[in-house]
């Protein structure tokens, strides 16, 4: 399955919310989509046989943020990469947990590290950091703290 096939298969379900499919090494293609069409896209991709959501992640590009999903199809032996650009101010996207339950912890981690909110997530709280941790450490704006400063801010844990 190549980018053209992927485009033809996904276009009916998404319409103009599908921004394009480009070749990406090692995958069936990189699907760029608008955040509003997230849940429809996930369902369409699952219907194509990509049953295993391998990972969810986020990137802070300073002027905007990107959220990406990598899904694997056991039948096709292929990955597919889905990515959407989000505004830098209050980025949020629909949660993929209704389609792929394994998105749960990945989305918690993405929220915790790059501050992308996943709407209708069943349990959006800290995964790797203690409760009450105030930072999103993988943002570009995050500065490494002096140990004493960090200690004061997280003392209540």
């Amino acid at each position: 399955m190549g980018p053209e096939e992927l485009q033809q298969a996904l276009a009916p379900a998404l319409g103009d919310r599908l921004l394009g499919v480009e070749p990406f090494a090692g995958t069936a293609g990189r699907v760029r989509f608008r955040a509003e069409g997230a849940l429809d896209l996930f369902r369409a991709v699952l219907a194509l046989g990509f049953t295993h959501l391998s990972t969810v992640g986020g990137i802070d590009w300073v002027d905007h943020r990107e959220v990406f999903y990598i899904a694997w199809s056991d039948d096709r032996k292929q990955y597919v990469l889905l990515s959407a650009d989000l505004p830098a101010d209050a980025p949020h996207i629909e949660s993929a947990t209704p389609v792929w339950p394994s998105a749960n912890w990945h989305e918690r981690e993405t929220w915790e590290f790059v501050d992308i909110t996943f709407d209708h997530h069943p349990d959006l709280r800290h995964l790797l950091m203690p409760d009450g941790y105030e930072f999103h450490p993988l943002l570009r704006s995050f500065k490494l703290h002096e140990p004493e400063e960090l200690e004061v801010k997280t003392r209540h844990v």
């Binding site: 930072f135 995050f142 490494l144 703290h145 140990p147």
Partner: peptide, 9 residues
Amino acid sequence: RTAYSVVPG
């Protein structure tokens, strides 16, 4: 020591 997740001692 300066990491965001580690207790410095």
